[in-house]
Nucleic acid binder design. Sequence first.
DNA 1: GTCTATAACCCGATAGAC
DNA 2: GTCTATCGGGTTATAGAC
Lengths: 191, 191
Amino acid sequence: MAYPAKTDRGRILTAAIEQIEEQGLRGLSLRALAGSLGLTPNALYRYFADRSVLESALAGEVAGLLHLAMQRAVRKGASEQAIRSIARVYLDFARKRPKLYELLLLPCDMEGEQATPHQELWSFVLGHVTALTGAHQASEATIAFWAYLHGTAQLETIKVFGDPKPGKAFEYGLDAWLFAASATVGKTAKS
Amino acid sequence: MAYPAKTDRGRILTAAIEQIEEQGLRGLSLRALAGSLGLTPNALYRYFADRSVLESALAGEVAGLLHLAMQRAVRKGASEQAIRSIARVYLDFARKRPKLYELLLLPCDMEGEQATPHQELWSFVLGHVTALTGAHQASEATIAFWAYLHGTAQLETIKVFGDPKPGKAFEYGLDAWLFAASATVGKTAKS
DNA sequence: GTCTATAACCCGATAGAC
DNA sequence: GTCTATCGGGTTATAGAC
């Protein structure tokens, strides 16, 4: 044991997220990351096989953060209110921590039958949508909802429309979705 | 003039797009790009100040391709049909040429008062939405529509839901939007 | 004005010693 | 688990040939 462990997975992930919040995902350098932990560049390879594995783990961390924020925001309130809270938390996260949000957009290769980082988030949102629409078409409605959140967040972060936040436009689409979702209620699976 | 130009902007862009379609944006190497044009690595710097300038130019090219495809698809058909055509072309493009689509997601920094690469595309879509909804709330409706397309395309490309294409879910959201957009018709700006 | 040549510095990744 | 050494490659800057 000439070389005792100087770090662990958790510390690496925390330091990496810190660096990403400052310089973005592209600016994340394994060398600098190791340096900030007092390690030589290659020590990290004992914890993560390569850069992409580290990135996937980071995506999972970020999904967890977002999930937690949603749980806190939704605790009280009826179905429609819960949906609005989820939407707000999602957009706030993308706005306030855009560099971190970027991690959620990484491709999930899913070679093994592993869980995608979004899985828990997905179940959470699906549950609240189902509470609103009933089981019929709940998954379609959830996918559409999620896609809309996703697209709105990204259009903002790449500044397609310049600085002004498309706040009113977001309400427009959200109301359209809520109307459709409410209309679904009561339909049976056989109709 | 002992060193006549061996290339030009257009040839560089074409070769770059070719390389991106094969290896993705991250795999675009200026060295390999120059090599494929019979140049030494640094010759490109006479045409583009650095990598990011080249990438912005490429984003413009791709936006043009998409715009063209939309124009061809929409030529005939009523307003609602035009909207459906636009949506289909957008998603088809993202599905069939995902590496190229990625270029449209680059941040537009817009330091000068330049036009964003999406600008022509935006005007085109806004026109068709306005034909459907009237001028009132047309821009809100267009932003919501675009965000939805955007989000759907990206959720597919990062495979959040695995292989199965969320085709039915897309229809769900599109119908919701179309219903809202149709309901907008006839409202006056003052109401 | 365009390309070549060279070099410095960054990065990710591997192999093998301790 | 960590270290040293090293490799191949991307980006950037300078100097110079034509």
